[in-house]
Write a protein that binds this DNA or RNA. Structure first.
Lengths: 152, 152
DNA sequence: TAGATACAATGACGTACGAAAATCTCGACG
DNA sequence: CGTCGAGATTTTCGTACGTCATTGTATCTA
């Protein structure tokens, strides 16, 4: 088994269960605990694994509404706008993009009223020329981290 | 300190560091290890915390290109399309939405060529009436999990 | 020679258990 | 009608125990 395959398998195993103990990983991949420890540490040091996080179910916490905002922005104002969006706590993702719009942002809200209010407030910004909001009806999948390819 | 505040603080502490030990959480929040253990277990059982996952840096792994697809789909074909998108490994998020388009999907690719090919293949589907692709120039933030409000 | 492995020692960790404290329930009484 | 308090329930806490991750050393392999 090559080094890189082991790393990919480790990442995949951790994506499956971020809590997995080094021992269980060692058994699963048929290598020693020490090797697993070394490789996982290396992945963390390299930044491939940038830490661990609980998967929080925001739906259960009352953040029922997800909205996708698309904005056309004055070119020079782009950093201002993205900065402002990022500091909005409930913004999950903010992208600068090519295409019809300049910015696409995804946010989560407790209800449509709160969403409308917050979005309205955002859109008062004179540097936003045009906007388009899509409300999510159904999240087929969200923030899925896909597994890496392994050639055996 | 109320029960709910403790839970919110625990979630926030774990969002800050999903690896935090029960002991460090206990010290940080000034409660006993047992209390932390009970509450974290409860949060996991309730589904508020749906598990733990490593934060994988796909950029570092060569998935440089992120694209946002918007599709108009024959109403009856919507489940087919979303199903198919979900099974595309590199799709990170797939939403059914209101607005100009019916589906918004976010995917990651190793290069623009691969992206174009994969997207072209997807769009041959006759049930997709119209599509629009935005390529991400800059991810201001991505899949940020925001912290919960705590009233002290 | 560099990387992987096995083994042992140590300190940290998660969890189960019983005791103590806090909170809630609800009828009795002023 | 409002207040009180005993019993019951829930929550919290400290301790103890077995498991785990980590580290260092020595051995093996490509």
């Amino acid at each position: 088994m090559t080094y890189e395959n082991l790393d990919a398998k480790l990442v995949n195993a951790l994506l499956d269960n971020g809590d997995a103990s080094l021992r269980s990983l060692a058994e699963q991949l048929d290598v020693s605990v020490t090797t697993v420890s070394n490789h996982v540490s290396a992945l963390e040091d390299e930044g491939v694994i940038r830490g661990y996080t609980p998967k929080v179910d925001y739906d259960l916490l009352g953040y029922d509404v997800t909205a996708i905002l698309q904005l056309k922005v004055e070119g020079s104002a782009l950093p201002d706008i993205t900065d402002r969006l990022r500091t909005e706590k409930q913004m999950v993702s903010v992208y600068e993009v090519t295409g019809d719009y300049d910015v696409i942002a995804i946010g989560k809200f407790t209800d449509t009223d709160g969403m409308n209010e917050q979005i309205k407030r955002l859109l008062t910004d004179p540097e936003i020329n045009e906007s388009n909001t899509s409300v999510v009806l159904n999240s087929v999948c969200e923030n899925e981290q896909f597994s890496l390819e392994v050639d055996d």
